[in-house]
Design a protein around this nucleic acid. Structure first.
Lengths: 238, 238
DNA sequence: GCTGTCTTTATGTACTACATATCGCCAAAT
DNA sequence: ATTTGGCGATATGTAGTACATAAAGACAGC
């Protein structure tokens, strides 16, 4: 059997790609939109024209268009046809961000990503910080002390406010989307120990205006999480 | 005209939601998968069963399934039906991350996001840094000095390596996906000034083992970009 | 010049039909 | 008895037809 020689190769024999027409049409449409340099508001050919042009049934074209529609790349109005729109880049992200779907490794990766964001945040935070912002943070920190016990909601409110202060809406939404992952990972951890620096402590550091002091405070605040990240870089045998 | 009274209300008269059957079925299927607590490998009912159960045509079900298939939530095999899979969370992200589709505000947001990541990176980088890693970075830095002129490719190689060293594959891929946005934003900037600290300088700081010194070096390296972010937090009149 | 109606047209949905791949079963061969 | 090969059943993939619906554009009426 000459076919056997293929298997004997070092190739990892990945499954043969079973591309369906809808997949191909989707890719072709993407390419089409790119090459034609369509801008938001421009309208595409009709479904029938696309189907005929591509030599497939209208059904297939509709499946492909349905995908683009879900991603927010196009919108369709009844008679006018389909128009190009600006997709919400986080909208599609949201659709697959469900803890039940994600493997644990990826969830830990995302958790680390959050820690990185948090530690880099001061450089965006300080230039845009106002007295009003500080007051809001103080209020949230006070509520934390009032309830005393570890409230995940308060945690979310405080850190969420930090992102909000940056004025970077994409960043803020990104953080919001990642929240369920954080919550899930935290439930995986045995004892929810708190860092030495509380939210009130962070606010005090903010008020000093010392960015690096604040960053070190944040590091202390997140210390319990960082301490858990002891798995080394995988695949690196150096 | 009594209809006018509606407009006079404070409601922002958002466009009537024109949900198509495919949209609804997509949502229902998502819900279905969640509630049934499906795990990867489990198989869904057939298209006909779903269509009959939902009271819609097979066409509509197929459009919805086509979307889930694109996101990698399900896979379909010829006779076995459809099986749940673990989606690649960044795969869908990739599909909408095209500079021609994204408005400039979002692109600037993403650019800032990159800066935040970069500044937070040391806390993930240092615990996992090896001598071999340093050697690789040195090599890249040397190639930069050899070519002398500002090479975007070298920039990508160096910073990409930093992400790679973290061993966080999701983070690394995320950064890779964002690269086209960075490249685009940089082309928007008039003069591509370089920071005071070069890549070689960063490697030297790495070798000292002083995390904070490295972070400050990174800040200097990125200074030209940070200096451009002077638009204040929008909507905040405080 | 504005308003209301009518026609046209493209999408949304349903249904039928058939090709194709594959799973499971059963029989035949070793 | 285990394996191999073929056969039928079945679910997806694709094509095509038909019709409802909404909306854009034209046109007539005031």
């Amino acid at each position: 059997m000459p076919a056997m020689s293929i298997l004997s190769a070092t190739h990892d024999l990945e499954p043969i790609l079973n591309k369906t027409m809808a997949d191909i049409v989707e890719a072709r449409l993407r390419e089409f939109i790119r090459n034609k340099n369509y801008k938001p508001g421009d309208s595409l050919p009709t479904e029938m024209e696309l189907a005929e042009g591509l030599g497939v049934s209208r059904n297939v074209v509709r499946e492909a268009l349905s995908r683009l529609r879900m991603l927010g790349i196009i919108e369709t109005r009844k008679k006018r046809g389909m128009v190009i729109t600006q997709p919400d880049i986080l909208g599609s992200f949201e659709k697959v961000l469900d803890p039940i779907m994600i493997d644990e490794t990826t969830m830990r990766d995302i958790f680390e990503l959050r820690l990185v964001l948090e530690m880099g945040l001061p450089d965006l935070l300080f230039p845009r910080l106002t007295d009003a912002h500080v007051a809001e943070l103080e209020k949230i920190a006070r509520e934390e002390q009032a309830t005393d016990n570890f409230r995940i909601q308060n945690e979310i409110a405080f850190h969420g406010k930090l992102y909000e202060i940056t004025g970077n809406n994409t960043l803020k939404r990104f953080q919001s989307l990642l929240l369920p992952i954080f919550a899930y990972v935290i439930t995986l951890e045995e004892k929810p120990t708190r860092g030495k620096i509380s939210h009130s402590g962070l606010v005090e550091l903010l008020k000093t205006g010392n960015k690096e002091a604040f960053r070190q405070g944040m590091l202390e605040h997140l210390r319990p999480h960082f301490d858990r990240l002891e798995h080394p870089a995988p695949g690196e045998t150096a």
